[in-house]
Amino acid sequence: MTDAATLLPSNASTLERAVAAADAHISAIPAPVREVWNPYTCPAALLPWLAYAYGVEEWDEAWSDNVKRDVIAQSLQIKRIKATYGAVQRAVVAMGLPARVQEWFQQSPAGQPYTFRLAIESDQIGFDGPQLARVRSVVERYKNTRSHLAGIDITIRSTGGPRPSSVALTGTESRVSDGTPAYADGISALDLLIDGAVNGYSETGQAVEQLRDIVAGMPAKLTIPTDL
Rank of each mutant, 00 (worst) to 15 (best):
A119F: 11
A119G: 08
I120R: 01
I120A: 06
E121M: 07
E121S: 15
S122K: 05
S122E: 14
D123N: 15
Q124S: 15
Q124L: 06
Q124G: 09
I125P: 01
I125E: 15
I125M: 06
G126Y: 04
D128A: 07
G129C: 06
P130L: 00
Q131A: 15
Q131V: 09
Q131S: 14
Q131M: 13
L132M: 13
L132C: 04
A133I: 08
A133G: 07
A133S: 12
R134D: 07
R136D: 07
R136E: 13
R136W: 00
S137P: 00
V138A: 02
V138R: 03
V138F: 01
V139E: 03
E140F: 06
R141Y: 04
Y142P: 01
K143L: 04
K143N: 04
K143I: 05
K143D: 02
K143S: 03
N144T: 00
N144W: 00
N144P: 00
N144R: 08
T145Y: 05
T145A: 07
R146A: 06
R146N: 07
S147K: 06
S147Y: 07
H148R: 15
H148Q: 13
G151P: 02
G151L: 00
G151S: 05
I152K: 03
D153S: 08
I154G: 02
I154T: 06
T155M: 03
I156W: 01
R157V: 11
S158K: 02
T159H: 14
G160V: 00
G160H: 07
G160M: 03
G161I: 00
P162N: 08
R163G: 01
R163C: 02
R163V: 05
R163N: 03
P164C: 01
S165C: 01
S165K: 02
S165V: 00
S166F: 05
S166C: 04
V167A: 07
A168V: 10
L169D: 04
T170W: 06
T170G: 10
T170F: 06
G171E: 05
G171K: 05
T172Q: 12
E173A: 12
E173G: 07
R175A: 09
R175Q: 09
R175M: 09
V176N: 11
V176T: 11
V176I: 12
S177W: 14
S177G: 11
D178G: 14
G179W: 05
G179Y: 06
T180E: 12
T180Q: 10
P181H: 04
P181I: 06
A182W: 10
A182D: 06
A184R: 09
D185T: 10
D185Q: 12
D185F: 12
G186M: 09
S188D: 15
A189Q: 12
L190H: 13
D191W: 14
D191H: 09
L192W: 14
L192A: 10
L192E: 13
L192S: 05
L192C: 10
L193E: 07
L193D: 08
L193Q: 12
I194D: 15
D195C: 08
D195F: 09
D195I: 07
G196V: 08
G196L: 05
A197P: 00
A197S: 14
A197K: 09
A197E: 15
V198S: 04
V198P: 01
V198I: 14
V198D: 11
N199R: 13
Y201V: 10
S202R: 13
S202P: 00
S202A: 13
T204F: 03
G205M: 10
G205I: 12
G205K: 13
G205Q: 14
